[in-house]
Design a protein around this nucleic acid. Sequence first.
DNA 1: GTCTATACGCTGATAGAC
DNA 2: GTCTATCAGCGTATAGAC
Lengths: 212, 212
Amino acid sequence: MPYLRRNAPRPEPIDCRILTAALELFVSRGYHNVSVHDVQRRAGVSIGSIYNHFGGKEGIAKALYGHLLNELSELVKEVMESHKSLGERSRTLIRLLFEFTETRRDIIAFVFHAKHREFLPDEPPICSAEPFRRMRDMVEEGMARGEIGQGNAWVATATLFGGAIRLIQLRLDGVLEEPLPELAEEAWESVWNGLGAGEEVVPLAGRSAARG
Amino acid sequence: MPYLRRNAPRPEPIDCRILTAALELFVSRGYHNVSVHDVQRRAGVSIGSIYNHFGGKEGIAKALYGHLLNELSELVKEVMESHKSLGERSRTLIRLLFEFTETRRDIIAFVFHAKHREFLPDEPPICSAEPFRRMRDMVEEGMARGEIGQGNAWVATATLFGGAIRLIQLRLDGVLEEPLPELAEEAWESVWNGLGAGEEVVPLAGRSAARG
DNA sequence: GTCTATACGCTGATAGAC
DNA sequence: GTCTATCAGCGTATAGAC
C-alpha cells in the first residue's frame, strides 16, 4: 500500500498529507532548512497532529525513509523475479530507476540524494540498506554463475550501477537536460561492454563494434 | 599554496586554524549540526575572529569549498598534463583519488559527500564545477580521438568515473573495509574493459581472461 | 585584530482546551 | 485525535572593551 496516492478523493488520511508535504519540502530545501511549522502549514494540519502521529520532525524522516526504502526494495525484488540473468536484471533495473527519476522525482531524490546520516544518525548507511544489498546480491549471483569475471563484489556492483547513479544525480542537479530514459540503454551498454576500445590494455581486436 | 599545513610551526595563521577546524567538524557531523561556537572552540579562537575573517558560518563554507575545489582541479590538471591517452588519464586519476581518500579523507569527503546546495544555495551544482568539467573534457577528447566509442559525453563520463565515486562513498560510509588503493586497478579495468563476459549481447568469445 | 558579553529570532517541543 | 498558545534553548550575529 503506497503511502502516496495521486488524485485521491478529498479526505486523504492525515498521515499521508504530512508525509507528502514533508517529502516535498525535504527534497526541495533540505531537511535542516525545513521546520516543523513549514510541514504543518503545507500539509494543512496542526502541529499537535504531527507530534501525535510521528512524535516530531525526526519521526517524520524515519517513517519516510522506511517507506521509500521499502518501495525501492520491492522494485529490485520484482526485477530479480522477472529476469534471471545479471545482464537483463541490471539493464531493467537501470531503466526503471531512470523512469522513476522522471515520474517520481522526489522519491528518488530523497533516497539517492539526501545525506541521511546527518539527520538520522542511528540508521545504518544507506549503501547497506536492503535495496542496495539486493543489488549486491544480484551481482554476486551473476559472478558465481560466471556471467561476469571473478573479482571483488563491491567493485563489480559499484561499476555496474555507479554510472547510472551518477547520471541520476546529474539529472536531479539539473545538469543533464535530457530525460534519463533516453539514455538508459546507452548507459547500461557502456558499462556492460566496456568503454575502452581495448587495443592497448587487452590485446583483442574488433571490440568497438556495437556502440551507438 | 595549500591552506592546510601539516606539522606547521606553532604560530599557524588564524585563517588556517579556522578552516581546518571547520572542515573536520563539517565532515564528521554535517554542516547543519555544527555551530559557530563549535568551530570557534575547536580552532582555539574567538567568535569575533571568525566574523572578522569570514563574515559568518556560510563564509567559512564558501572559502572551504573554493579552496578544496581548486586543489582538486589542480590534481586533474596535472593528470591531464602527465598522461595523454584517456585510458591512462582515467586510470591515474582514479588511483590518485583513491589514495587521497585514505590520506586526506576530509577533503574528499567534503567535496564528494557533502550536499553543498543545502548550505550554499547560490553555488552552481558541484557536478558543473571545474574539476568535474575537466573530467568531462577529458572524456570528450578521448571520444574525439576514437579511444572510446561515440556517444553521449555525460554518459561516458558517468560510466568512467561513476563506479570509482561510488566506491569512494562506500569507503567513506565505512561499508568498505579494504583501503581503496588496493581496488583501484580492478575498478578501472572493470569499467574500461566491461563487466559482462559478453556472450549474449556481443557475440565474442574468450573475454573473461585478465580479471583478478 | 582579537576578545567577551549580550541580544534576539527561530525551532523543536509541550500543555491543555475542545 | 485535533487544535492553539506558549515555552525554553540554541544558534547566528553584533556591540563594544582591550
